[in-house]
């Protein structure tokens, strides 16, 4: 009964043009989008809107429910909001005083409002695009693409092994947590202070981590034996090797980077004007 984390694993099945697109292209697309968003200056509203439009078009092209994608990004935005919001009241600049209710005033600086809004929009754009790309790409494809882009073999093998056993172990973890929860009980009118001490709780949790590790070690021995039994030769197979990129694909990747750079330049120019 995996909950929570497994649900957040972002791949969503589909057969859209984005799903079928070569993972290497998608990685290049993602990186150019993220870099562009990161390089955009503060207050470049027009370019933000343009990027937002681009994001929306890409989301529609994925044939996935756009609301789900936007919502995922929004959830990820919450901690960012929490960190940025207090700064509204702390930055330098001209203060604007706002009377919310009689007798209660809020004052904040206009320049930091602009800055924080810009940061929020930029991070939301980045999150939205990351959510989208990981939703249309299976981890295995992502890994194969990274391997093709020069990810060292050993690291790729570790990633692959980790991925294969991740959900098994998460499930194990959750059953252990359930078992702990079902014994974390207080009878009626016991009159005793329940819960145990902080140190004891942390140590029990440590015991659970240790138990998980112990079972993991045993499992890894079994895995190795099973791998040997199937003729393991030093590399964990990552599916079929990727074909070399065509010139068209390479040109497309270059174009994306150039477009991003152009956007950054335009945005900077507009701000300067």
């Amino acid at each position: 009964m995996p909950t929570g984390i497994v649900q957040r694993a972002s791949y969503l099945r589909g057969s859209s043009i984005l799903h079928r697109c070569d993972a290497r292209i998608k990685i290049a697309l993602l990186i150019s989008f993220l870099l562009t968003a990161a390089f955009l200056p503060i207050g470049a509203w027009v370019v933000y809107a343009l990027m937002g439009g681009l994001l929306l078009v890409a989301m529609l092209a994925s044939e996935l429910p756009v609301s789900v994608l936007l919502q995922r990004a929004l959830v990820l935005e919450i901690p960012i909001l929490l960190v940025l919001l207090p700064q509204l009241f702390l930055q330098k600049g001209n203060f604007v005083v706002l009377t919310v209710i009689k007798g209660f005033q809020i004052s904040f600086s206009m320049s930091s409002l602009v800055r924080i809004t810009s940061l929020l929009i930029r991070s939301y754009l980045s999150l939205g695009f990351t959510v989208l790309i990981t939703a249309v790409t299976r981890f295995e494809d992502l890994l194969a693409a990274m391997r093709a882009c020069g990810l060292p073999r050993m690291l790729a093998s570790i990633f692959a092994l980790m991925w294969r056993y991740l959900f098994v172990l998460i499930e194990e973890m959750e059953r252990m947590t359930q078992a702990r929860a079902s014994r974390s009980a207080v009878p009626v009118n016991s009159g005793m202070r329940a819960g145990g001490s902080f140190g004891w709780r942390a140590q029990v949790t440590g015991g659970m981590a240790g138990a998980l590790l112990l079972r993991t070690l045993e499992r890894s021995e079994r895995i190795y034996q099973a791998m040997l039994a199937r003729g393991y030769d030093g590399e964990v197979r990552l599916g079929h090797a990727s074909e070399p990129l065509t010139w068209g694909q390479k040109a497309a990747m270059l174009l994306m980077l150039l477009m991003g750079a152009a956007l950054v330049l335009i945005a900077n120019g507009m701000n300067g004007a």
């Binding site: 059953r175 145990g196 138990a211």
Partner: peptide, 23 residues
Amino acid sequence: SPDDQLFSNSVYEDVAYGLIYQG
């Protein structure tokens, strides 16, 4: 699976868990 329920150094600590929690 009893492994889901046993996560301590000793049998005593595992069996005592519920009671320690109750205080």
